[in-house]
Design a protein around this nucleic acid. Sequence first.
DNA 1: GTAGGGTTAG
Length: 683
Amino acid sequence: MIRKFKVSQTSFHISCTFLHKKVSHFVQHHPKNQKGNEAVVFSNKCFYPDVYTCTKTIQSYVRNNRADDALKLFDEMPVRDVVTWNTMIKGCLDCGNVEVAFKLFDEMPERNVVSWTTMVSGLLMRGMMDVAECLFMEMPMKDEAAWNSMIHGYFINGKVEEAVRLFHKMPSRSVISWTSMISGLDQTGKSDEALFLFKHMLLCGVRPTSMTFSSVITACANVKNLHLGREIHGHVVKLGYFSDTYITAPLITFYAHCKDIDSCCKVFNEKAHDSVVVWTSLLSGYGLNCKHEHALEVFSDMFKANVLPNQSSFTSALNSCCELEALDRGKEINGAAVKLGLEADVFVGNSLIVLYTTCGNINDGLSVFKVIAEKNIVSWNSMIVGCAQHGYGTWALILFNQMIRYEVSPDDITFTGLLSACSRSGMLNKGRHIFNFLLNYKSVKVKLEHYACMVDILGRNGRLNEAVELVKNMPMEPNTSLWLALLSACKVHSNLKLAETAAEAIFNIDPNCSAAYTLLSNLYAFAGRWNDVSRIRGVMKNKGIMKEPGLSWVNFKGSRHEFLSGDRSHPMTTEIYEKLEWIREKLKGLGYVPDQMFALHDVEDEQKETSLLYHSERLAICFALICSVEGSTITVMKNLRVCGDCHSVIKLIAKIVEREIVVRDSSRFHHFKDGFCSCCDYW
DNA sequence: GTAGGGTTAG
């Protein structure tokens, strides 16, 4: 009887009768190796197949994450050669068992250049630069592969200069050395230099391989070099590399970066693809070009083509949902991720946090955050920024304390999130504490936006003099955003003198800053200085500076329903205005009197809307009340900040209809419930 | 026949 056991690419015909006679415990397991073939485990102490077969089995074990079985077989083998030792060392390094790899490397009777290179590469992959460098220095002989390993390792550890130095120092260079350099430079943000080196390589007469072209096309994408990219495209077609997924995917990405979506489709449609990477290239290509509906169509088509999306596909699709504010579709995709076992994936999770928090659903964002198995800095930052957007300052600080306990190092984005959380929650002392912590935290460089946040915190809390002192003493030049934070604070605390100084500083940087003109005009209006109001409006008119019209919208059943102030264009206008009238009566019953200041004096932040009653957000809320399920939370988006009167009215509406109303304005989220708003009237 | 070096989407 002949049974056929396939090991790696080779087929073995083993006589089972023969083996059964000599081996007491024969086949225990049949681990699948990468090729899907079967390997056989021999653990008998009397007989072992030849060294070659055992070595292949060790390799299969390692590829199936069964390092312990690999080590057991290795220990039991009566005879090993240098290849067996090297295979076992590589297996230990791949599984992260550096200690055992070192032990084997020390114990092995005879080392060759492969043993040394295996150790060096493995250590470099694990970021152990110093040890790898020492071993590389100690190598008794170095061939080209050894030099190439070290160059690649320097790049993956961000040591660009060292990689370049070694490349020039190495005795001879092959196309692999050149390709390592090109991809390494590209991946460390030096795509221009990568392309320069590619041209130099051609001048040196080195023939590129498909791998070289793959990296070169990616570099062309990163620098948006349409001319060179097209030229390379022509070459790869002539050379027959076109069906190579390592060529197709970067080509699609290249055309997407160059905003040539037609060419993306053309490349994609050349043949049927079963590569998830190629599909994801197209999906993200549409996203890059703001064609998010198309992106989501590609995501659906993947399933129809029996190509299962992976974490990258989900990340791109969820990003498109976020851009479309398509919460319902995002939830469906979340469900698909759960079905595919990607629920705890950090990349998918991070995208979901951003989606949920951006669409007003902070609690779902937090649920996703909790499920992520290995949270990274992006997870923590996304959650902290999400809390900041919703004004959940205390939560943001709790998360910060947790991340410190988990020994995750905060970065500049963490501190921007924390400071804006303090600002939006009115937490003056906590904000000061965080800012001082940042000033003394050596690992993060303090940026302009951190100062802008601190100016905002101080300004909102009426500490205008302190804010001015901070601006005077900061180590960099303030920008318009920072001055606008101060100007806004001047408006809240009616400090016209300082406002004029801030506005002047803004106009020196940006003479057409619409927001500054509007804020200043509103300040003059509050002070009753109508001549100055007219003067500012005159300047704006002469300069052709337009105020952005107030626009609110509701996403309902996959469509976006937009409303301008006093809008009557929506098909449900009659019902909306009836609802509005119903609310007006109810408000009257509660004794509500409109604050005419908001209507008469153009005091709304950026925009005067003709009548308080018909402000865009009120129309959007009425539409949402009519269309949504009774009792459910409704979410409304607005491009400008909610005006003070609308803010008071929405609090009452939430109480009247006994529902939570979430409003995302240009500043933050407001959660209205039971007559209160989560911003505590501080926004 | 087995071991070490370069490539794609996010």
